[in-house]
Computed example of a mutant assay.
Amino acid sequence: MDALQAETRFSHGFRFGGSVHVLVTADSLSGSWTYARELVTGLVTRGVRVTLVSFGQIPLPDQTSWMDHLHGLDYRPTAFRLEWMQEAEEDLPESSAFLVTLIKELRPDILHLNHFCYGNLPVDVPRVVMAHGDLVTWTHAVHDRAPRPARAFDWYRRTVLNGLMSADAVVAPSAWMLECISSCYARPRRSEVIYPGRNPIFFNPYVSKDDCVLAVGRLVDASKQVFLLTQQQHPLPVCIVGAEHTVPLPRIPIRADVRVAIEETSVAIRGPQTDAQWHALARSRFLPLRDCCQ
């Protein structure tokens, strides 16, 4: 199953085609951008009219190049703060008003929201909220406790809960995530697990591979535990892709490339990559981390 099923299951009887209009929200600061790219591309290529509204910050040209050949996509970038950002409470009324005005102007058939906070918009349009993750379930999973009491967290919890309870349907990328959302907030009135995926056209399984390990993720996120890769020697070279200078310096040398002789095993740390750079890195042979850390 893929993200497109969110629309096919919860579209209130609509049939795909030029007459259907989906408004999608996303942000370029998290994994929801890749998710939105796959969803939007799939919808547009199937003849669906799509309006994509992004939040958080204006994306860089490299982040929007995939839109160049998507005829029928209406892209509206904004810099409104995301619900998990500091001072997001100040931006939410304005960003919500912006979305409501846009929805009344464009009159989409369905909203696919990659943010909880817009699940309770005062509009008469079916709303699908995608539960990628949130601060409360993250704290429970990483620190095994609830977030410490704070006014900002109280506002955040209420905002997420209101969005979840007002949505016509909530989609989660895994059964675990859906259960976490249900236990930390409340069980949505209608929910579904739909696993995200990537278009296989981006990956060529027949090119030659290098024996190395490629780790990808937000390095500042403690739940990724990327620092474990820097704590010992490995039988294969390791490349970590993410923001620079966000993990403790390893005891072994850091190199700038992936190709490292096994006798001189080291860890390479790279910053954000363009699509072309990703395609080059994808030539590496991905191995389970447990096999390389024992």
Rank of each mutant, 00 (worst) to 15 (best):
D2F: 06
S19E: 15
V22M: 01
V24F: 02
A26P: 01
S28V: 14
G42L: 11
V44N: 03
R46H: 15
R46W: 01
R49M: 03
T51Q: 07
V53K: 01
I58M: 09
P59N: 07
L60F: 13
T78H: 11
T78E: 08
M85I: 01
T101I: 00
L113T: 00
C117G: 00
L121R: 08
D124Q: 13
V125G: 09
H132Y: 12
G133F: 10
L135I: 12
V136H: 09
T139K: 05
A146L: 15
P147A: 12
R148P: 00
A152I: 10
R158P: 01
T159K: 08
A167G: 03
P173I: 02
A175P: 00
L178S: 03
S182L: 01
S182A: 13
R187Q: 14
Y195C: 05
N199R: 14
P205E: 13
V213P: 02
V213E: 02
S223M: 10
L228G: 00
Q233D: 13
L236Y: 11
V238A: 04
C239D: 02
I240D: 04
T246M: 12
P248R: 10
P253W: 11
R255K: 12
R255N: 13
V258N: 07
S266Y: 04
V267K: 06
G271Y: 09
Q273C: 13
D275E: 15
A282T: 00
A282P: 00
F286K: 12
L289V: 15
Q294A: 13
